[in-house]
Every structure is written in structure tokens, then in C-alpha cells.
Amino acid sequence: MEFRDNKAIYLQIIDYVFEQILLGKWCANEKISSVRDLAAQLEVNPNTVARSYEMLQNQEVIQNKRGIGFFVCANALEKIRNQRREEFKIRELPEIFRSIYLLGIDFDQLKEAYHDFINTINLQENENK
């Protein structure tokens, strides 16, 4: 994983966990990597992963089953999607709408571009299977 300088590493690890859940790589009630394993995989200090996992537990995205490990909460996907949608609407959508307006792009063009994007994603997923 390539870490960016503009965001704290523990927050980037949270984003990584969110992405794994959103992509369906980590499913509800499934055991996830231990703190040490994820730290080794990402080449970071275990304390950094522990901090990320603590925040994820507070958000009720993961839970620690003592002596067994960490698991994805049953409603984690829904929580993450809702949180990310709100962030997107507040932070990114206004700038996207501004660009659409300034460039004179109509919704039919957007719809076509979106469908092309989805088709590309589906083709890539089928090739990876």
C-alpha cells in the first residue's frame, strides 16, 4: 500500500479496511487480519493498526471477539456506504456539479459515460475471475 503524505496513516488504514468491505473482500461476520498481520502486510507499526482498529470498533464496523480475533460487523457495509455517501455529497459533489455546469455537460452525456465506466469495471472483474 502506498501511503500519502496528506493524511494520517491510521486514517488511510481505515480507508483501506472500508475499501476491503465495500469491494466484498471482507464480508459481514468474517474474520479479518490481526493487528500484527495487517501491520506486517502494510509495513507499518502495529500500534498504528491498533489505533485504526480501535476507531473502527468505535464506529461499529469491526468487533473484537476476545481470544478469537477481529470480525466485520453484520451491518458494516451499510454503515460505510451511508457514511461515504454523506461525505461524497458534502465534499465532492459540489465540485463535480460546478465542473459539469462550467463545461456544459448534459445529463445524457453523464449517463452514457457512467454506463461506459460500469461496463469497463464489469469487464475487468470478469477477467480477474
Rank of each mutant, 00 (worst) to 15 (best):
A74Q: 15
K31W: 01
K111Y: 07
I9P: 01
L23A: 05
S99M: 11
F3G: 01
F3T: 09
L110D: 03
V35D: 05
N128P: 05
K31S: 07
G24I: 00
T48M: 06
E92L: 12
Y114I: 09
L103V: 06
G69F: 08
R66H: 11
R4W: 05
L23V: 07
L22M: 15
E86H: 11
F117Y: 15
A76S: 03
K129P: 03
I68K: 15
A28C: 04
L38F: 10
A74K: 14
I118S: 09
N29L: 07
F97Q: 13
I100T: 06
E125S: 11
Q59Y: 12
L77S: 04
Y10M: 03
E125C: 09
V44Y: 03
G104N: 04
A8S: 10
N6G: 07
N45K: 06
H115F: 13
Y53I: 05
E127R: 14
F88G: 02
N119A: 15
A50R: 12
R81T: 07
Y10C: 01
I100Y: 06
A113M: 04
N6E: 13
L22H: 10
I90P: 06
V44A: 08
N75C: 01
N82D: 14
I121N: 01
Q63H: 15
E125N: 14
D15M: 08
I68L: 13
L77F: 13
I14N: 06
M55F: 11
G104L: 02
L38H: 01
N126Y: 11
D106Q: 01
L38A: 05
I105K: 06
I90W: 06
E92S: 10
S34T: 12
F71C: 10
P46F: 01
N126I: 08
D37E: 14
E43R: 12
D116S: 09
L102H: 13
A28Y: 00
I32E: 05
Q20E: 13
Q124T: 08
R85L: 14
G67T: 04
L77I: 00
G69H: 02
E86V: 07
Q20H: 08
Q41P: 09
I80D: 00
E92D: 12
F71W: 09
I13D: 10
C73F: 05
Q20K: 14
L38I: 08
S99K: 13
K79F: 00
E60S: 12
